[in-house]
């Protein structure tokens, strides 16, 4: 019986049909998705913090409004993804618990601090740029709710990258202090952005099932290469140079060769020793704690008035 269900499931996946919440699915598939989707959601939400850090100090009204809208989108993306994840039989409360007790991770990149306004540009350009490469690939993922959430997210993402690139462009063509700021931000955010694509394919633990079940459509290294190729050209256009002495166009491969990532740093940050890990988590935990009385009151009111009639 199980074998029959399993082969029906695999046939669906192979035929590029979507798996929906009430379809039979292998337990490992469900678990993998809960982990991946929830971590994606957590990343969006934690990602609100480094950028939220500069909302009150944005240097123009337009920049402020654009940044608020961007951070708001990130909250929205978190919600689309929590929403997709909850269809797999897990509650929002459980998901938040997993984040708080470290059982679930979020993208490493958000453990880096935003030290200047140029960092906001760098994040939009590089971090969102890397996320877009990853997310476009995920639009074809096999789980229906996840795929639909990704399509929605991708539609909204392109304005994010443009916002960041515009900031970097303006600054690299501005007064000397602005050019310095832009260069400094690029120097600090380049390598962490490359790390966003995860370990080399050979060192990646979860890959094979993810590929068989069409959860993951392209490999880490493929996506990383795509990102580098795109971004180097963008940097050239605005007169910024990538902080990699080994970066070189390879005419045979028709791709850029680039230097080796510092994997020690990568693992250090994942394991909790990044600059802002503790702060990011404490901010999230505190906001949740401080909001408890509000959630309780809203629930109590709804019960008293029978769901707001």
């Amino acid at each position: 019986m199980q074998d029959n269900y399993e082969s029906v499931f695999q046939d669906k996946v192979d035929a590029e049909n979507k798996i929906e919440p009430k379809d039979w699915m292998p337990d490992k598939y469900r678990k993998h998705l809960v982990r991946q989707i929830s971590q994606h959601a957590h990343s969006e939400v934690i990602g609100m913090q480094p950028e939220g850090n500069w909302i009150t100090r944005a240097p123009s009204l337009r920049a402020k409004m654009v940044l608020i809208a961007k951070v708001q989108d990130e909250a929205g993306h978190g919600l689309y993804l929590y929403s997709a994840c909850e269809t797999l039989g897990i509650t929002r409360d459980e998901l938040i618990q997993q984040l708080h007790n470290g059982k679930a991770k979020y993208s490493n990149i958000f453990n880096y601090p935003t030290l200047s306004w140029a960092d906001i540009g760098a994040i939009g350009w590089l971090v969102d740029g890397a996320a877009i490469v990853n997310q476009q690939s995920l639009r074809g993922t096999s789980y229906g709710p996840y795929s639909r959430a990704m399509i929605r997210i991708c539609k909204e993402e392109s304005f994010h990258q443009r916002q960041g690139y515009e900031i970097m462009s303006k600054m690299s063509n501005g007064i000397p202090k602005q050019r310095e700021m832009a260069k400094d931000a690029l120097d600090r955010w380049w390598w962490p952005s490359l790390m966003m694509f995860g370990p080399h394919d050979a060192d990646s633990a979860h890959s094979s099932h993810a590929v068989k079940w069409k959860i993951k459509r392209h490999t880490n290294d493929e996506l990383r290469q795509l990102f580098v190729d795109r971004t180097v050209k963008q940097a050239d256009l605005i007169g910024l140079s990538i902080p990699d002495p080994d970066l070189k166009w390879n005419d045979k491969r028709k791709h850029y060769d680039f230097g080796e990532i510092d994997w020690d740093e990568f693992w250090e940050v994942i394991n909790g020793n990044g600059f802002c890990n503790r702060e990011r988590m404490n901010n999230h935990i505190n906001a949740h704690k401080e909001g408890q009385w509000v959630r309780e009151a809203a629930l109590a009111y709804a019960r008293k008035t029978k769901n707001g009639e």
């Binding site: 609100m48 909302i55 999230h284 906001a287 909001g291 408890q292 509000v294 959630r295």
Partner: peptide, 9 residues
């Protein structure tokens, strides 16, 4: 100033 601090998302 309430960015990422609200009682729920």
């Amino acid at each position: 100033e309430w960015a990422y601090r609200a009682p729920f998302l």
